[in-house]
Simulated scan of single mutants.
Amino acid sequence: MKYAAKKVLTLIITLFIVSLLAFLAFQIIPGDPTTKLLGTEATEAAKEALRAELGLDRPVLVRYWDWLTGFLTGDMGTSYSYHMPVSDMIGQKLPITALLTVISFFFTVVLSIPLGVLAGSVRSRALDSFFTALDQVVMSIPAFFIGILACYIFGIVLRVFSPGDFVSYTEDWGRCISYLILPALSIAIPRIAMTVKMLRGAILNEQGQDYVRTARSRGNSRRAILSRHVLKNALIPVITFLAVSAAEIMTGTIIIEQVFTIPGIGRLLLASISNRDFPVVQAIVVILAAWIVIVNFAADLLYQLADPRIRLR
């Protein structure tokens, strides 16, 4: 219980620090939203009037406190560019990004575990070298480059889909999911390679333990030892790694949404940065940071449940 309480306290402090840094960062970076909204020809008087209207003339800490209390109650402010509540804008985009994250995570889990078991159980030196080399190559390819290749091969050459088109889940769930398969695989493939490498290493490490030699001496088959003992222990760190991957997958959607022109929060974030729409940017950054922190918190608790030795430390 103490372990969980400490983690909850750390989570709250981390989220507070992240929100403060995110807010302060957009106060010091170059670029004035009034110039973006009024144009470079606007007079200083007009800019000052707009700054007063937007509340940008108040002290930074006062603005942060107002923004934080509003954020905690669901009021994320109003977009400078679109003049609509930020919460409504994010509410329209977040389900698409969340769906893409879920599909990517599904592919990561379903494909990486059997491939990792296969890579860790092969006895041929040639196959082992092949798996190792292939894994290293795939891990080194960025997800956005895989996405670009997928767009070119399946969109332009094979014409499986039309690059730039998108059907929202509000119109047709089936077509929406089918469009998200290639982007999801583009995100998942590097994560699959990392998970395969980790699971392979964990299996090989467990196979050298004393309990495996004891099981062999008692006449257990290699397959029985792998399924009953080795895999159970090897999956403990891998499950935690997969939980952490869920956070990284969501942040990875930002670039992939640009590649496949998916109208999620990734595209909204980049467009808002370009427009100096700070309320939108701040809200998305804090949401992404909160997602990462919460998922890591859940992964720590999951690892503690899977490995009781952590509680003793």
Score class of each variant (00 low, 15 high):
170 T>N: 15
170 T>C: 03
171 E>C: 02
172 D>T: 12
172 D>N: 15
176 C>N: 15
177 I>G: 11
178 S>L: 15
178 S>V: 13
178 S>M: 15
179 Y>N: 12
180 L>N: 04
181 I>E: 02
181 I>P: 12
182 L>V: 09
182 L>P: 01
182 L>A: 09
183 P>W: 05
183 P>C: 04
184 A>V: 09
184 A>W: 04
188 A>M: 10
189 I>K: 11
193 A>S: 10
196 V>A: 04
197 K>R: 15
197 K>Q: 12
197 K>M: 09
198 M>A: 14
198 M>T: 13
199 L>T: 00
199 L>I: 01
200 R>N: 02
202 A>N: 09
202 A>C: 03
202 A>W: 01
203 I>G: 00
203 I>R: 06
203 I>T: 01
204 L>M: 14
205 N>Q: 15
205 N>E: 11
208 G>L: 10
208 G>I: 06
209 Q>V: 03
210 D>V: 14
210 D>C: 08
210 D>H: 13
211 Y>C: 03
212 V>G: 00
213 R>L: 04
215 A>C: 02
216 R>V: 03
217 S>T: 08
217 S>I: 06
217 S>P: 07
218 R>W: 08
220 N>F: 13
224 A>L: 12
224 A>E: 09
226 L>D: 00
226 L>M: 14
227 S>K: 13
227 S>Q: 07
229 H>P: 08
230 V>G: 05
233 N>T: 05
234 A>Y: 11
237 P>H: 02
237 P>G: 08
237 P>R: 04
238 V>N: 05
238 V>I: 13
239 I>Q: 01
240 T>Q: 02
242 L>N: 03
243 A>F: 07
243 A>L: 14
245 S>C: 12
246 A>P: 07
247 A>W: 04
248 E>F: 06
248 E>I: 03
248 E>Y: 14
249 I>C: 06
250 M>V: 12
250 M>S: 06
253 T>S: 15
253 T>P: 12
253 T>E: 04
254 I>P: 00
256 I>N: 01
257 E>L: 15
258 Q>P: 00
259 V>Q: 08
259 V>P: 09
260 F>A: 11
261 T>A: 15
262 I>K: 14
263 P>H: 05
264 G>S: 06
264 G>I: 10
264 G>V: 12
264 G>W: 07
265 I>T: 15
266 G>E: 03
267 R>H: 01
268 L>F: 04
268 L>G: 03
269 L>P: 00
270 L>V: 15
272 S>M: 05
275 N>W: 00
276 R>E: 09
277 D>A: 08
277 D>L: 13
277 D>C: 10
278 F>M: 07
279 P>T: 01
280 V>Q: 02
281 V>Y: 07
281 V>A: 04
281 V>I: 08
281 V>S: 05
281 V>N: 03
282 Q>W: 06
283 A>E: 02
285 V>H: 09
286 V>Q: 10
287 I>P: 07
288 L>E: 00
290 A>P: 14
291 W>R: 01
292 I>N: 06
292 I>K: 03
294 I>L: 15
294 I>D: 04
295 V>K: 07
295 V>Y: 00
295 V>E: 03
296 N>F: 10
297 F>W: 15
298 A>P: 00
299 A>P: 00
300 D>V: 10
300 D>W: 09
301 L>P: 05
304 Q>D: 06
304 Q>K: 12
304 Q>L: 12
306 A>K: 11
307 D>R: 14
309 R>S: 11
310 I>H: 10
310 I>T: 08
310 I>Y: 11
